[in-house]
């Protein structure tokens, strides 16, 4: 009985950790521009697929990982430079639609150049899983959770301590005032896209031993990550992690205790409930719009 409960919990943690890590990627660009970057899932894909492809060319695994991270960062900066910056005067909705277009484009490129097959990467630890109370937990899930926590702390420090982080926040709060204060807002936005792509690619790398990777893996992961970010309150990194875990656990408990047929429905009911009572999400800022 208890081992069953543990197993569902561990299963939820595995799922939740993945969603949380993806959700973190959304926070940065959202904080900088209020744009929800729907190409975030594709950065994940570049992280995973890029590593697989580079390993295929004979590079050792660590070098391939670094290569994929660099590739994704470049892709993020290019996405901003080529697609977002030219439309700088457009409103947020237009920019969001541009990111959807960019995601389809990146997916198409990956499909064309890297193929359509699914690939796997080896897990980080030698041990595959731990047995706790009659249930098993993947060591890779612990890696994912740990890295998510590290990222939350790092992001918090980045936004509160570093000049660049503060510049990003200033840009999001008031672009014109930021520019008057000497912040090059377009450069800042480009940097935000680059770092966000880096975060996404790192997430893609870390989750691949569990989820596998392919050119279209970003669709599902990106969507779930977005949902997690929305539950937690867009822009809050703590919220992203809590939202991800909440989503993962509710999926696992539903599949375990109710029925796997309703596994995807129950989380959506939870989301609707949360957003109905807390439109800004669990940890979203409650700042009133000034008129």
């Amino acid at each position: 009985m208890f081992s069953e409960f543990f197993q569902f919990t561990f299963s939820g943690i595995t799922l939740g950790a993945i969603y949380a890590l993806v959700a973190l990627g959304f926070t940065l660009i959202y904080n900088a521009s209020h744009v929800i970057n729907f190409a975030q899932g594709e950065f994940l894909m570049i992280g995973g697929m890029g590593t697989v492809v580079l390993v295929g060319t004979g590079l050792p695994l660590p070098a391939a990982m670094v290569g994929a991270l660099v590739l994704a960062t470049v892709a993020g900066i290019l996405l901003h430079r080529l697609a977002i910056a030219p439309a700088r005067d457009a409103d947020v909705v237009t920019l969001i639609i541009i990111t959807i277009g960019a995601s389809i484009f990146l997916r198409g490129l990956a499909q064309f150049f890297w193929g359509k097959e699914y690939h796997a990467l080896p897990r980080f630890s030698a041990t595959e899983s731990l047995s706790i109370g009659g249930a098993t937990l993947l060591t890779q899930s612990l890696w994912i959770l740990g890295i998510a926590v590290v990222l939350v702390v790092a992001l918090a420090m980045f936004f509160s301590r570093s000049k660049l982080g503060k510049a990003i926040l200033a840009t999001s709060m008031n672009k014109d005032a930021a520019r008057l204060a000497g912040i090059k807002t377009q450069v800042i936005l480009g940097v935000a896209f680059g770092i966000s792509a880096l975060l996404g690619a790192a997430a893609g790398l870390i989750v691949t031993p569990i989820t596998f990777t392919a050119y279209d893996v970003g669709i599902m992961l990106g969507l779930k990550g977005f949902v997690a970010a929305a539950i937690g309150g867009l822009g809050s990194s703590t919220g992203a992690v809590v939202g991800g875990l909440l989503l993962g656990l509710s999926e696992a408990y539903t599949a375990g205790y109710i029925s796997s047929d309703y596994k995807d429905a129950v989380p959506f009911v939870i989301i609707l409930a949360i957003l109905f009572f807390l439109p800004n999400g669990l940890f979203g800022s409650r700042a009133a719009e000034r008129v």
Binding site: T211, Y253, S260, D261
Partner: peptide, 20 residues
Amino acid sequence: DETYNPKDTDVTAQLTRIRN
């Protein structure tokens, strides 16, 4: 008789139900 979404990344909950 359990199901999962083709894009799911973990099905241990369903398999636990089957095992039990």
